[in-house]
Write a protein that binds this DNA or RNA. Structure first.
Length: 283
DNA sequence: CGGACAACCTGGTTGC
DNA sequence: TGCAACCAGGTTGTCC
Protein backbone atom coordinates (compact mmCIF):
# COMPACT_ATOMS: atom_id res chain seq x y z
CA UNK A 1 0.00 0.00 0.00
CA UNK A 2 1.87 3.03 -1.20
CA UNK A 3 1.85 5.74 1.45
CA UNK A 4 4.11 8.79 1.69
CA UNK A 5 7.43 6.90 2.09
CA UNK A 6 6.65 4.55 -0.80
CA UNK A 7 5.52 7.32 -3.17
CA UNK A 8 8.58 9.37 -2.23
CA UNK A 9 10.81 6.38 -3.01
CA UNK A 10 9.08 5.94 -6.37
CA UNK A 11 9.56 9.64 -7.06
CA UNK A 12 13.27 9.55 -6.32
CA UNK A 13 13.88 6.34 -8.25
CA UNK A 14 12.02 7.57 -11.34
CA UNK A 15 13.35 11.14 -11.27
CA UNK A 16 16.89 10.03 -12.01
CA UNK A 17 15.63 7.74 -14.79
CA UNK A 18 13.21 9.88 -16.73
CA UNK A 19 13.73 13.59 -16.10
CA UNK A 20 14.49 15.56 -19.27
CA UNK A 21 13.40 12.66 -21.47
CA UNK A 22 10.84 13.09 -24.22
CA UNK A 23 7.69 11.00 -24.35
CA UNK A 24 7.11 8.91 -27.48
CA UNK A 25 4.26 6.48 -28.01
CA UNK A 26 1.70 6.11 -25.23
CA UNK A 27 -0.29 2.87 -25.18
CA UNK A 28 -3.43 2.60 -23.05
CA UNK A 29 -4.49 -1.01 -22.49
CA UNK A 30 -7.23 -0.13 -20.04
CA UNK A 31 -8.77 3.32 -19.90
CA UNK A 32 -10.24 2.60 -16.46
CA UNK A 33 -7.05 4.03 -15.01
CA UNK A 34 -7.58 7.39 -16.74
CA UNK A 35 -9.64 9.66 -14.51
CA UNK A 36 -10.26 12.73 -16.68
CA UNK A 37 -9.43 11.81 -20.28
CA UNK A 38 -10.25 9.28 -22.94
CA UNK A 39 -7.34 7.17 -24.12
CA UNK A 40 -6.92 8.92 -27.49
CA UNK A 41 -6.82 12.36 -25.97
CA UNK A 42 -4.56 11.18 -23.15
CA UNK A 43 -2.02 9.75 -25.58
CA UNK A 44 -2.15 12.73 -27.93
CA UNK A 45 -1.52 15.26 -25.16
CA UNK A 46 1.40 13.32 -23.71
CA UNK A 47 3.15 12.57 -26.96
CA UNK A 48 6.36 14.56 -27.51
CA UNK A 49 6.18 16.23 -24.12
CA UNK A 50 9.36 16.34 -22.06
CA UNK A 51 9.29 15.26 -18.41
CA UNK A 52 10.76 18.23 -16.57
CA UNK A 53 10.45 17.30 -12.91
CA UNK A 54 8.82 14.80 -10.55
CA UNK A 55 7.07 16.05 -7.43
CA UNK A 56 5.07 14.41 -4.67
CA UNK A 57 2.22 15.71 -2.55
CA UNK A 58 0.98 13.34 0.12
CA UNK A 59 0.47 10.07 -1.74
CA UNK A 60 0.17 11.74 -5.16
CA UNK A 61 2.98 11.64 -7.71
CA UNK A 62 3.19 14.58 -10.13
CA UNK A 63 5.02 14.52 -13.46
CA UNK A 64 5.64 18.13 -14.50
CA UNK A 65 5.88 18.32 -18.29
CA UNK A 66 6.98 21.04 -20.67
CA UNK A 67 4.25 23.40 -21.92
CA UNK A 68 2.97 23.40 -18.32
CA UNK A 69 1.12 20.11 -18.59
CA UNK A 70 0.94 17.94 -15.48
CA UNK A 71 0.38 14.21 -15.15
CA UNK A 72 -0.88 13.24 -11.70
CA UNK A 73 -0.84 9.64 -10.46
CA UNK A 74 -2.26 8.02 -7.35
CA UNK A 75 -1.23 4.38 -6.87
CA UNK A 76 -3.99 3.60 -4.36
CA UNK A 77 -3.59 -0.05 -3.24
CA UNK A 78 -1.60 -2.04 -5.77
CA UNK A 79 -0.41 0.44 -8.40
CA UNK A 80 3.17 0.22 -9.65
CA UNK A 81 4.90 2.65 -12.03
CA UNK A 82 8.12 1.07 -13.21
CA UNK A 83 10.96 2.07 -15.52
CA UNK A 84 11.96 -0.34 -18.26
CA UNK A 85 14.56 -0.54 -20.98
CA UNK A 86 13.98 -2.37 -24.24
CA UNK A 87 10.43 -3.71 -24.52
CA UNK A 88 7.83 -3.31 -21.76
CA UNK A 89 7.12 -6.67 -20.06
CA UNK A 90 4.09 -8.67 -21.15
CA UNK A 91 1.74 -8.59 -18.20
CA UNK A 92 -2.05 -8.90 -17.98
CA UNK A 93 -2.08 -6.29 -15.21
CA UNK A 94 -0.21 -3.67 -17.24
CA UNK A 95 -2.73 -0.95 -18.14
CA UNK A 96 -0.55 1.79 -19.57
CA UNK A 97 2.86 2.18 -21.24
CA UNK A 98 4.61 5.52 -21.72
CA UNK A 99 7.62 5.07 -23.97
CA UNK A 100 10.48 7.54 -23.67
CA UNK A 101 13.19 8.59 -26.09
CA UNK A 102 16.22 6.31 -26.02
CA UNK A 103 14.54 2.88 -25.97
CA UNK A 104 13.09 3.01 -22.48
CA UNK A 105 9.87 4.01 -20.76
CA UNK A 106 7.47 3.63 -17.88
CA UNK A 107 4.77 1.01 -17.48
CA UNK A 108 1.85 1.15 -15.10
CA UNK A 109 0.81 -2.12 -13.48
CA UNK A 110 -2.11 -2.45 -11.07
CA UNK A 111 -3.75 -5.73 -10.11
CA UNK A 112 -6.81 -4.15 -8.55
CA UNK A 113 -7.08 -1.18 -10.88
CA UNK A 114 -7.82 1.29 -8.08
CA UNK A 115 -5.01 3.65 -9.10
CA UNK A 116 -5.75 6.66 -11.30
CA UNK A 117 -4.03 9.08 -13.68
CA UNK A 118 -5.18 12.68 -14.16
CA UNK A 119 -3.79 14.69 -17.04
CA UNK A 120 -3.96 18.48 -17.16
CA UNK A 121 -2.87 20.94 -19.82
CA UNK A 122 -1.57 24.45 -19.35
CA UNK A 123 -4.14 26.69 -17.71
CA UNK A 124 -6.21 23.84 -16.30
CA UNK A 125 -6.44 23.73 -12.56
CA UNK A 126 -4.89 20.42 -11.61
CA UNK A 127 -5.56 20.89 -7.94
CA UNK A 128 -8.98 19.31 -8.20
CA UNK A 129 -10.18 16.16 -6.51
CA UNK A 130 -8.04 14.86 -3.69
CA UNK A 131 -5.09 17.15 -4.39
CA UNK A 132 -7.13 20.27 -3.65
CA UNK A 133 -8.06 19.25 -0.15
CA UNK A 134 -4.80 17.72 1.06
CA UNK A 135 -3.65 18.89 4.47
CA UNK A 136 0.01 19.49 5.31
CA UNK A 137 2.22 16.44 5.42
CA UNK A 138 4.38 15.78 8.48
CA UNK A 139 7.45 17.25 6.74
CA UNK A 140 5.76 20.60 6.07
CA UNK A 141 6.39 23.71 8.16
CA UNK A 142 2.64 24.05 8.71
CA UNK A 143 2.58 20.73 10.56
CA UNK A 144 3.15 22.10 14.04
CA UNK A 145 2.09 20.92 17.48
CA UNK A 146 -0.59 23.66 17.69
CA UNK A 147 -1.93 22.67 14.25
CA UNK A 148 -2.13 19.05 15.32
CA UNK A 149 -3.72 19.88 18.64
CA UNK A 150 -6.35 22.17 17.11
CA UNK A 151 -7.24 19.60 14.45
CA UNK A 152 -7.53 16.76 16.94
CA UNK A 153 -9.94 18.80 19.05
CA UNK A 154 -12.25 19.44 16.09
CA UNK A 155 -13.47 15.85 15.83
CA UNK A 156 -14.78 13.11 18.04
CA UNK A 157 -13.63 10.07 16.08
CA UNK A 158 -10.76 7.81 17.12
CA UNK A 159 -7.25 9.20 16.92
CA UNK A 160 -6.35 6.62 14.27
CA UNK A 161 -9.22 7.66 12.00
CA UNK A 162 -8.15 11.29 12.43
CA UNK A 163 -4.53 10.54 11.56
CA UNK A 164 -5.70 8.77 8.39
CA UNK A 165 -7.71 11.82 7.24
CA UNK A 166 -5.73 13.17 4.26
CA UNK A 167 -7.38 16.58 4.54
CA UNK A 168 -5.88 16.87 8.03
CA UNK A 169 -2.49 15.17 7.56
CA UNK A 170 -1.37 14.08 4.09
CA UNK A 171 0.59 10.91 3.47
CA UNK A 172 -0.18 8.60 6.39
CA UNK A 173 -1.98 5.34 5.55
CA UNK A 174 -2.81 2.25 7.54
CA UNK A 175 0.74 1.00 8.04
CA UNK A 176 2.23 4.28 9.26
CA UNK A 177 -0.83 5.16 11.32
CA UNK A 178 -0.31 2.01 13.41
CA UNK A 179 3.46 2.52 13.60
CA UNK A 180 3.18 6.20 14.50
CA UNK A 181 0.64 5.57 17.26
CA UNK A 182 2.83 2.83 18.70
CA UNK A 183 5.87 5.11 18.63
CA UNK A 184 3.83 7.80 20.39
CA UNK A 185 2.44 5.35 22.99
CA UNK A 186 -1.14 6.25 22.08
CA UNK A 187 -3.96 3.74 21.75
CA UNK A 188 -5.50 3.94 18.26
CA UNK A 189 -9.03 3.70 19.69
CA UNK A 190 -8.64 6.80 21.87
CA UNK A 191 -11.05 9.61 21.05
CA UNK A 192 -8.94 12.17 19.22
CA UNK A 193 -10.21 15.14 21.24
CA UNK A 194 -9.09 13.64 24.56
CA UNK A 195 -5.32 13.59 23.96
CA UNK A 196 -3.24 15.50 26.48
CA UNK A 197 -0.78 18.13 25.33
CA UNK A 198 2.05 15.71 26.06
CA UNK A 199 0.42 13.07 23.90
CA UNK A 200 -0.06 15.54 21.05
CA UNK A 201 3.63 16.42 21.24
CA UNK A 202 4.51 12.72 21.21
CA UNK A 203 2.24 12.11 18.20
CA UNK A 204 3.77 15.05 16.33
CA UNK A 205 7.31 13.82 16.91
CA UNK A 206 6.39 10.20 16.13
CA UNK A 207 4.75 11.04 12.79
CA UNK A 208 7.89 12.85 11.64
CA UNK A 209 10.36 10.27 12.94
CA UNK A 210 8.48 7.20 11.67
CA UNK A 211 8.03 8.64 8.18
CA UNK A 212 11.63 9.85 8.06
CA UNK A 213 12.87 6.39 8.97
CA UNK A 214 10.53 4.72 6.47
CA UNK A 215 11.74 6.99 3.64
CA UNK A 216 15.34 6.18 4.60
CA UNK A 217 14.49 2.45 4.37
CA UNK A 218 12.83 3.00 0.96
CA UNK A 219 9.31 2.15 2.13
CA UNK A 220 7.48 -0.99 3.17
CA UNK A 221 6.80 -3.98 0.92
CA UNK A 222 4.08 -6.23 2.34
CA UNK A 223 3.13 -7.75 -0.98
CA UNK A 224 2.75 -5.50 -4.02
CA UNK A 225 4.79 -2.38 -3.43
CA UNK A 226 7.80 -1.83 -5.72
CA UNK A 227 9.73 1.35 -6.47
CA UNK A 228 10.43 2.75 -9.95
CA UNK A 229 13.22 0.20 -10.43
CA UNK A 230 10.92 -2.71 -9.50
CA UNK A 231 12.72 -3.08 -6.17
CA UNK A 232 11.11 -3.87 -2.81
CA UNK A 233 11.35 -1.58 0.20
CA UNK A 234 13.05 -2.52 3.48
CA UNK A 235 10.95 -0.98 6.22
CA UNK A 236 8.83 -4.15 6.64
CA UNK A 237 11.80 -5.48 8.65
CA UNK A 238 11.40 -2.65 11.12
CA UNK A 239 7.63 -2.69 11.64
CA UNK A 240 6.83 -2.90 15.33
CA UNK A 241 3.07 -3.48 15.26
CA UNK A 242 1.60 -3.53 11.73
CA UNK A 243 0.95 -7.13 10.65
CA UNK A 244 2.17 -8.49 13.99
CA UNK A 245 -1.12 -9.14 15.77
CA UNK A 246 -0.75 -12.11 18.15
CA UNK A 247 3.03 -11.71 18.34
CA UNK A 248 4.78 -10.25 21.37
CA UNK A 249 5.61 -6.56 21.70
CA UNK A 250 9.33 -6.02 21.11
CA UNK A 251 9.36 -3.42 23.87
CA UNK A 252 7.44 -5.08 26.71
CA UNK A 253 6.64 -8.65 25.66
CA UNK A 254 2.85 -8.25 25.84
CA UNK A 255 0.77 -9.96 23.11
CA UNK A 256 -0.15 -7.40 20.43
CA UNK A 257 -3.88 -6.92 19.87
CA UNK A 258 -5.44 -6.99 16.38
CA UNK A 259 -8.77 -5.20 16.07
CA UNK A 260 -10.85 -3.06 13.70
CA UNK A 261 -10.74 0.71 13.83
CA UNK A 262 -12.66 2.79 11.33
CA UNK A 263 -13.06 -0.34 9.23
CA UNK A 264 -9.30 -0.93 9.02
CA UNK A 265 -7.22 -3.70 10.48
CA UNK A 266 -5.40 -2.20 13.46
CA UNK A 267 -2.67 -3.57 15.70
CA UNK A 268 -1.45 -2.13 18.98
CA UNK A 269 0.24 -3.06 22.26
CA UNK A 270 -2.24 -2.89 25.16
CA UNK A 271 0.65 -2.26 27.58
CA UNK A 272 2.59 0.41 25.64
CA UNK A 273 -0.59 2.00 24.25
CA UNK A 274 -3.06 1.79 27.14
CA UNK A 275 -6.77 2.50 26.65
CA UNK A 276 -6.79 4.99 29.49
CA UNK A 277 -4.06 7.54 29.90
CA UNK A 278 -2.37 7.19 33.31
CA UNK A 279 -2.50 10.31 35.45
CA UNK A 280 0.51 12.48 34.75
CA UNK A 281 2.72 13.07 37.78
CA UNK A 282 2.05 16.49 39.25
CA UNK A 283 4.85 18.96 38.73
C1' DC B 1 -21.24 20.07 7.88
C1' DG B 2 -19.88 15.54 10.17
C1' DG B 3 -20.28 10.76 10.34
C1' DA B 4 -21.41 6.20 8.53
C1' DC B 5 -21.01 3.22 4.94
C1' DA B 6 -21.17 1.20 0.13
C1' DA B 7 -18.59 0.99 -4.01
C1' DC B 8 -14.60 0.15 -6.66
C1' DC B 9 -11.37 -4.43 -7.70
C1' DT B 10 -8.69 -9.03 -7.67
C1' DG B 11 -5.89 -12.37 -5.41
C1' DG B 12 -5.04 -14.74 -1.34
C1' DT B 13 -6.88 -17.08 2.54
C1' DT B 14 -10.31 -19.52 5.11
C1' DG B 15 -14.11 -22.62 5.80
C1' DC B 16 -17.00 -26.35 4.47
C1' DT C 1 -9.80 -31.09 -4.16
C1' DG C 2 -13.28 -27.71 -5.28
C1' DC C 3 -15.75 -23.83 -4.56
C1' DA C 4 -17.97 -20.08 -2.10
C1' DA C 5 -17.36 -16.53 1.19
C1' DC C 6 -14.61 -13.25 3.04
C1' DC C 7 -10.78 -10.02 3.62
C1' DA C 8 -7.25 -6.48 2.36
C1' DG C 9 -7.64 -0.80 2.15
C1' DG C 10 -7.33 4.65 -0.30
C1' DT C 11 -10.52 7.40 -1.98
C1' DT C 12 -14.98 8.98 -3.80
C1' DG C 13 -19.71 9.31 -3.61
C1' DT C 14 -24.14 8.96 -1.31
C1' DC C 15 -27.18 9.27 2.37
C1' DC C 16 -28.93 10.93 6.82
Amino acid sequence: MPELPEVETVRRSLAERCCHKQIGEVIVHNDQVLANRGSGEFSAILRERVIVELQRRGKYLLFLLDNDAVLVLHLRMTGQIIYYEGDPPQDKHCHLVISLAGGCGLYYRDVRRFGRFWLYESGECYEEGGLATLGPEPFDEEFTVPYLQAGLRKRRCTVKERVLDQTFIAGIGNIYADETLFAAGINPLRRCDTLTEGEVRALHAAAISVLTEAVAKRGTTIRDYRDGNDEEGNFQRYLRVFGRGGETCQHCGTILIKCKCGGRGTTYCPQCQPEVTPCEPSA
